[in-house]
Design a protein around this nucleic acid. Structure first.
Length: 424
RNA sequence: GUGGCCGUAGCUCAAUGGUAGAGCCCCGGAUUGUGAUUCCGGUUGUUGCGGGUUCGAAUCCCGUCGGCCACCCCA
């Protein structure tokens, strides 16, 4: 296969079935976010590189920037995440909106890394952010939105878990242990982040630099019961979502701008990377605006790649997704022109049905009836309407039950008008 | 960026160093206005690409590109 005929590494083609699958995911995201009263926004795909440098996201994001110099000698980058763009929009027009601001976006993102399981160079992400409310109720609302989004795909507490943590709990604890400087705290958190992946010996050595022992850290993780979590759990239990949520102080997240509550969603079997992640970033807007805008914020992102993989691996969620895909690819009605001399009448019926919003297919040129029924069957239509010698009556064939009956045109129009086409 | 495995038809895969194949898909047909099955026929390969070894390479070696996976980090 010539290279020209392939997408670039880490980029995807979307054939109709892939588009339908994507629509299922993004449509579900959009629907749930709207039920929580969130409004959709978007920004440019390309941003000035400076935006990401200034925000100091930390972690690998700077190294993974898909960046280049444009024809005007500007250093630019395809956006690797939404938060800097959101911050830019908010700082520009923050006084135009009543608080709290509840916004979501569904957009493509780019990271230049080697593709592997669950990781591509271009992916979609749902971003939900709540700005201007620092209360615990806001944290709970965001985590509830995250859980409800997952539930909308048929995922249950048996399938996924939200691991919740709090950076304030860590800073308080580290302060009591004598680690006070901001830079030192950040470094220790980076070590905590690797707790599940690195050897005990290596962790012990790294912690010793800050006068810490691994046992002390593990004690804290095992025994700490921060007040915020008790309240959060009570809130979620009132919504019937308590089973989804667990305290797990090992979660600290790599991005530097998080200040309080942080959380990540994983599959229960721990076979995959994080499905979603987020947290509170109460200082980001202040820092980015050089002190002009001071608003607390909490948000999360869900990527489409790991989520899509997980949905395909669970029979019940796969069935829901496949049903949506089939529904999107199908048409509603197939017109069989059994007598070619009736084509003008058939085109009239087709136009009427289409005006009602029905999805209608038919043979564009004279075809044998057998061929037309084969096409009707493959089209996914519920019924075939045979137009021929019965005219002005039409023969209706239910393609599933294979039964036929003769209707007048008013009955067809009536049936069609009442047909509900479900949303993706 | 580092390392491991892999690369044969549109897809899934066969072929001891000795003539590149099968299934699926797609297209056409099986006399009259009826689609699931069946039957018949048909298209498709610079064996990813470039070198090397050999009388002879899909097969062995080197390079390169691409895919999958791990590390790093994370959606």
């Amino acid at each position: 296969m010539e290279i020209l005929m392939q997408a670039l590494p880490g980029f995807r083609d979307f054939f109709p079935a892939d588009c339908a699958r994507r629509n299922y995911i993004t449509g579900t995201w959009r629907r749930v976010a709207q039920t929580f009263g969130f409004q959709e926004y978007d920004g440019p795909t390309l941003e000035a590189m400076e935006l990401y440098r200034k925000k100091n996201s930390g972690g690998e994001i700077l190294g993974q920037l898909f960046s280049f110099t444009d024809k005007g000698e500007r250093e630019v980058a395809l956006r690797p995440e939404m938060t800097p763009t959101l911050a830019r929009l908010l700082i520009a027009k923050v006084r135009d909106f009543r608080k709290p601001i509840k916004w979501f976006s569904i957009a493509p993102f780019f990271r230049y890394e080697k593709q592997q399981s669950g990781r591509l160079r271009e992916f979609l992400q749902l971003n939900c952010d709540l700005v201007g409310d620092a209360s615990l109720g806001a944290d709970a609302e965001m985590i509830a939105l995250l859980i409800e989004t997952m539930r909308a795909f048929g995922l249950t507490a048996e399938d996924i878990v939200v691991r919740v943590s709090d950076r304030r709990a860590w800073t308080d604890f580290l302060t009591s242990e004598g680690v006070i400087e901001v830079a030192a705290v950040r470094e220790v958190l980076a070590i905590i982040d690797k707790l599940e992946r690195e050897s005990r010996e290596s962790l012990e050595i790294k912690l010793a630099v800050f006068g810490l022992k691994l046992a002390t850290i593990e004690d804290f993780i095992a025994s700490a019961q921060p007040d915020f979590f008790t309240a959060l759990k009570t809130n979620l239990e009132a919504r019937g979502l308590g089973d989804f949520c667990e305290l797990d102080l090992r979660i600290v997240r790599g991005l530097a701008y998080y200040t309080g509550t942080v959380f990540e969603v994983f599959d229960r079997r721990k076979e995959r990377r994080a499905l979603a992640g987020g947290g509170r970033f109460d200082r980001l807007l202040f820092d980015l605006s050089d002190g002009k805008t001071d608003l607390s914020a909490i948000g999360f992102g869900i990527g489409d790649v790991v989520l899509g993989d997980l949905l395909e691996s669970i029979p019940t969620t796969k069935a829901l997704m496949d049903a949506s895909i089939a529904q999107q690819l199908a048409c509603d009605i197939f017109i069989v022109i059994a007598d070619e001399s009736r084509r003008p009448e058939a085109l009239g019926v087709i136009g009427l049905l289409r005006a009602q919003g029905r999805r209608v297919n038919y043979s564009l040129s004279a075809d044998k009836v057998a061929r037309q029924f084969k096409d009707a069957n493959a089209s996914g239509a519920m019924i075939a309407v045979v137009i021929g010698e019965e005219w002005p009556l039409v023969k209706i064939k239910d393609l599933k039950s294979r039964t036929e009956s003769t209707w007048d045109q008013a009955a067809l129009a009536d049936w069609s008008a009442n047909l509900q086409t479900p949303a993706p």
